[in-house]
Structures are given as structure tokens and as C-alpha cells.
């Protein structure tokens, strides 16, 4: 009784190990807290760096379309507009295509094909942004300028209502091209979330619907999609977050032009592309501060979008019991 614990050496060892455990736990805790600090410090440092621009221009910074490096007048409206429009085009392309891919990978394709095709689509996410940009500039832009945009201009440009969106010279670079490239880039993110959540639908639910005589499409549209709705929206928001912050590819194909234009065929600018293009040219404090303030805006917008995405995906994880 108590023989082992009376041994002084064992006691000392127990004390030492408790201390080591406490130290280990504290180290890990500090590392985890660092993750939180990084995000907080990133936001704070950009707000601090952009304070000169926010103070000087006030709300005008958001709503003015003036971007005059010589006269030191900066307004973010053109880049904000470009970011929103190019991302909107991207989502119009990426959402239906991603849904189709998820449908193919969960219901249509034979089992042996699902793995390789899914992995190939995911490779699209692994290709760096700069490669998309180079391919876009040297292969995709000439093709758009030569074949696609003249056709768009001739046919859609004459259409009522939407006509003005598609009128303009076929430069190749511009909002439409940037939106298409962005769309391709976010397809793998949205489709892999959709595929993963479609797989979580209990087989009993789907089989019940099949047993009642439903077609594959009816099962997906009326059983799978309602069951996974919030996670699917979460996946779409995740893709939107990516599209909003995408930098290099857009920098190559958007045209870096600070002008507002109704036409999607005209060059424009986005928040991320403006920062990437002009950072090395920023020769005055107010110029640099305006670029960092743009970064802060981008951070706030993507934070909100990504936070919504995570909240919507979380509901599914909880139901899944994870």
C-alpha cells in the first residue's frame, strides 16, 4: 500500500512530467492563439496603413470614381465595381457548371471514373493563379479577341435591354474575359464542396425516392438538393470569396484601366489587381495608403463572405455528427 508512491524518485518524476505536460500544453495553446492573432493583426495593420486615405477622403473613398495619382485624389469605386462585376460573371458560369460536375461525380459517372475525374477537376485548383494569368494573356485573350467577342458584339450587342453590356471593340482583355477566367478558377472549389455534401445524403432517402419511381434528376433536384441546401450555398460563398480576392490571373486579363464602362467588353480594374499593379509605383504616402485601404476593404468583404460560407457549411458538419 503506497509503496510505489512513497518512493521519492517516482514522486519527483511525477512532478517533472506534470510540469512538462503543462509546458507542452502552453506551447500548443500559444501556437493556436497565434492563428487568431494573425487574422486580427492583418486587419488592424491594414486599417492602420490605410488610415491616411480614410481620413483624407472619408466616405468619398468608397463612392468616388476618381483615381488620380498625380493630383493625389483616390476613390475606390472603379476597382470595387470591377471586383463585383467580374466575380458576378464568374459565379454565373461556375455555379451551374459546378452543380453539373457534382451531379456527374455522384450520380451519372460509373464508379471507376469518379475518382480520376474528380481528382482532375481538383487539379484545376492546384494550378497557380500566375499560370492562369499567362495562359489567359497569351492563349485565351487572343482567342476571345479574334472569334468570341466579335460574335458577342454582333449578336448580343444588338439585343434589347442587355445590348449595352456587350457593345465595344473586341480587345480581348476586359471584364468578360476576366470573369470567365475567374469562373474556371473557382469551379473546382465549388464543385468539390457540392460533391462532398451530396455524398452525405443518407442512401435510404435517395433509395426511397428511387423506389417511388423517381428519375435521377428528380432525386437530385427534390431530395439531394433540399437536404444539402445550406452547405451548397456555403460552397458557393466559398467560391465567391476566392473570386473576390483572386489577384494575378485578373491582373493579366482585366486591363488595368481606371474607367467605368457599362460594356463588359471594356477593360476595367479590380481591387486586388489595382494593388498588385500599382504597389511598386506608389510614390506618395497618400497613394500607398489608398492601396492599403483598398486591401482593407477587400479583407472586410472576403471576411464576411467566407464567414457566411463557414457558418452554412458548419450546420452540415454538425448534422453529420462530426
Amino acid at each position: 500500500m503506497g509503496l510505489a508512491l512513497d518512493d521519492a524518485r517516482i514522486k519527483a518524476r511525477a512532478v517533472r512530467e506534470t510540469r512538462q505536460d503543462a509546458f507542452f500544453r502552453a506551447t500548443l495553446f500559444a501556437a493556436a492563439t497565434l492563428v487568431l492573432l494573425v487574422l486580427g493583426a492583418a486587419a488592424a495593420s491594414m486599417l492602420w496603413g490605410g488610415r491616411l486615405a480614410f481620413q483624407t477622403f472619408g466616405w468619398d473613398f468608397l463612392f468616388s470614381d476618381e483615381w488620380d495619382a498625380v493630383g493625389h485624389r483616390f476613390g475606390a469605386f472603379v476597382p470595387i465595381y470591377g471586383t463585383l462585376v467580374s466575380s458576378a460573371i464568374a459565379m454565373i458560369i461556375a455555379i451551374p457548371v459546378s452543380f453539373g460536375i457534382a451531379l456527374f461525380l455522384t450520380e451519372i459517372a460509373p464508379a471507376w471514373l469518379r475518382g480520376p475525374v474528380g481528382a482532375s477537376i481538383e487539379l484545376l485548383a492546384g494550378i497557380p493563379s500566375i499560370i492562369y494569368g499567362m495562359w489567359g494573356l497569351f492563349s485565351f485573350v487572343p482567342l476571345m479577341a479574334e472569334y468570341v467577342l466579335p460574335w458577342v458584339n454582333a449578336h448580343l450587342g444588338a439585343a434589347p435591354w442587355i445590348g449595352p453590356l456587350f457593345q465595344g471593340p473586341p480587345l480581348g482583355i476586359g471584364m468578360l474575359t476576366a470573369g470567365i477566367v475567374l469562373g474556371i478558377m473557382v469551379i473546382p472549389f465549388i464543385s468539390s464542396v457540392m460533391r462532398d455534401v451530396f455524398r452525405t445524403v443518407p442512401a435510404a432517402l435517395k433509395e426511397s425516392a428511387y423506389a417511388l419511381g423517381s428519375t435521377t434528376w428528380e432525386v437530385v433536384w427534390k431530395v439531394v438538393l433540399p437536404y444539402t441546401r445550406s452547405a451548397v450555398i456555403g460552397g458557393i460563398f466559398l467560391g465567391l470569396g476566392r473570386a473576390l480576392g483572386e489577384t494575378m490571373a485578373v491582373t493579366f486579363v482585366l486591363g488595368n484601366a481606371h474607367q467605368l464602362s457599362t460594356s463588359l467588353l471594356m477593360p476595367g480594374n479590380s481591387i486586388a489587381a489595382t494593388i498588385a499593379n500599382e504597389f511598386s509605383e506608389a510614390d506618395s504616402d497618400i497613394y500607398l495608403s489608398s492601396l492599403i485601404a483598398l486591401g482593407f476593404l477587400l479583407f472586410v468583404v472576403t471576411f464576411i463572405v467566407l464567414a457566411l460560407a463557414r457558418l452554412m457549411l458548419r450546420g452540415l458538419e454538425r448534422r453529420d455528427g462530426r
Binding site: 492563428v35 494573425v38 487574422l39 493583426a41 492583418a42 495593420s45 491594414m46 496603413g49 466559398l238 470569396g241 476566392r242 473576390l244 480576392g245 483572386e246 489577384t247 486586388a272 494593388i275 498588385a276 492599403i292 486591401g295 477587400l298 479583407f299 472576403t302 471576411f303 467566407l306 464567414a307 460560407a309 463557414r310
Partner: peptide
């Protein structure tokens, strides 16, 4: 999770 998908340009500015 947010940091995972956050635009890398923002981290660069930070």
C-alpha cells in the same frame, strides 16, 4: 478556415 481561403494578397500587405 477563413485564413485558409483568405486572399493571399491581403497577407502580403500585412
Amino acid at each position: 478556415d477563413i485564413l485558409l481561403s483568405a486572399p493571399s494578397i491581403v497577407l502580403g500587405l500585412f
